[in-house]
Design a protein around this nucleic acid. Structure first.
Lengths: 259, 259
DNA sequence: GTGGACTAGTGGTCTGATATTTAGACTCTA
DNA sequence: TAGAGTCTAAATATCAGACCACTAGTCCAC
């Protein structure tokens, strides 16, 4: 709570205090991680570049191989490099992709103490908020693909193959209509942990399939006619139902957990 | 692009294909990471619990200490454990905090191939979108603290101490008024990479300080009077100006890069 | 009481070795 | 000559055992 800038107005400006993350940690390996991360961030190392071998790095930096290895583990865990074994193997700087970042983000979220309701609400805000942009920027190709998607999903629904994943794919595709990678990535990552928390909910509400896909269809048509208000309205009720379902499942779980 | 479900409608549903992340990597250390991560996820290890010492773990799992250490590095890097040295030190499962996750998330974003404009637009959508929730749920305490914050910032401005960090703190505090950890976390993480890309922009437009803090003040009053429309309007223009500034800086940079 | 030395436990690092994997060169045969 | 098989070198993965630095307690002398 006492983390806000305002709580200590008179002292020297602590303003950007959280820019400097705990530097302590006089760990060699950490210093190496920072150094290499800096090289990547400043683009002196570019995606696809190979790092020297562990032995080589160790010699150059004056540390043992073990230390280098620990640094490599950290860099690998944060998705900055990939490591292959064998001849011509070694660490290469990864080509960052939004989907990769999205999954990393989803990992973080799924391990977080957030409740499903909270994530759902955030998702609602965001997915409804982007609709003006979606309507404005959706190309004919975008709309064609969305229509195609809806048709496929409705067919799948009749075969009993419609699932949360398809619904998620639809929402991500809608986000892609903004042609903004950041937005697409965020929506994408929302649907990772949500899938997990909704898997059971689907069983409890199988009707959602029909209503859901119909709403998807109506939504696409609203976008096609550039009707922002209608598109927003549809999406709002669509997501609202999801939110209620999540809340219900969550409540049930908590009741069970208590007993 | 060919990653959407619809592109391969007839084959067996690859739908949830990205739920199973590349399992390969027959690395001992990776197996250990998975095991411990599983223990944490299934709550057999709870925040605050201490893991056995490295030597101990090594014995129990039949691997050497180096291997354990690499696993620890990975777990530490993904924010699951914290490691202290010295007597009674060791690895403890971290109490996950949204701010910690937020910074991790910000790290991810800042290393991503997203442009500042994209992130800014996403931020705009989100921060404007939450306003109805903010207005609805802001408590008297919330509003009092926001007012206090604005006063402090205006004082700082007069002393020439007002910076991006303070502005960021304000926006995060506004998000906190939703009393939704997911939303607060997202906004918080938005302001990490944005700070970096805006540092220069501030120099170019020093006037922003006065207008910015005045808008902050007006915004708080709009929330206090539960005037959603006005609050949205203020925030929209406030963020719109930021967006334009980011775009301008970005354009300048690209022009420089070309020469 | 209180400050300071002592101690045991823990992570951090080093050394030097073996095992395993893999790309590429090389060889042998049909 | 083409293709299959083999060999080799380079790289990571892992091990075992050692030593250092740090830290929370404990205990003792003043």
């Amino acid at each position: 709570m006492s983390e806000h800038v305002t709580t200590a107005p008179k002292v020297a400006p602590r303003a950007n205090s959280d820019l400097y993350r705990a530097v302590s940690s006089n760990r060699m390996s950490e210093a190496i991680v920072d150094q290499i991360r800096g090289l990547i961030r400043s683009e002196q190392l570019r995606p696809g570049d190979r790092l020297p071998s562990e032995r080589d790095l160790g010699e150059r930096m004056g540390v043992s191989r073990v230390t280098i290895r620990e640094a490599m583990r950290v860099l690998e865990a944060s998705g900055l490099i990939e490591i292959k074994v064998g001849a011509r193997g070694g660490a290469v700087v990864t080509t960052p992709s939004s989907t990769k970042i999205g999954t990393g983000l989803a990992d973080l979220i799924s391990l977080s103490p957030l409740t499903a309701s909270e994530v759902t609400e955030a998702r609602q805000v965001f997915e409804v908020g982007i609709i003006p942009i979606v309507v404005e920027r959706a190309t004919d190709d975008d709309i064609a693909e969305l229509r195609n998607m809806v048709a496929t999903h409705q067919a799948a629904l009749r075969n009993g193959e419609y699932g949360m994943a398809m619904s998620a794919a639809f929402h991500v595709r809608v986000a892609a209509c903004t042609h903004n990678a950041a937005i697409e990535m965020l929506v994408h990552s929302f649907h990772g942990p949500l899938l997990m928390s909704l898997r059971e909910a689907q069983v409890a509400a199988p009707l959602m399939g029909h209503r859901g896909t119909n709403e998807h269809r109506d939504f696409v048509e609203a976008v096609a006619t550039r009707d922002v208000a209608r598109a927003e309205e549809i999406m709002r009720t669509h997501l609202g139902r999801t939110a209620r379902r999540v809340a219900r499942v969550q409540a049930t779980r908590e009741r069970e957990a208590k007993s």
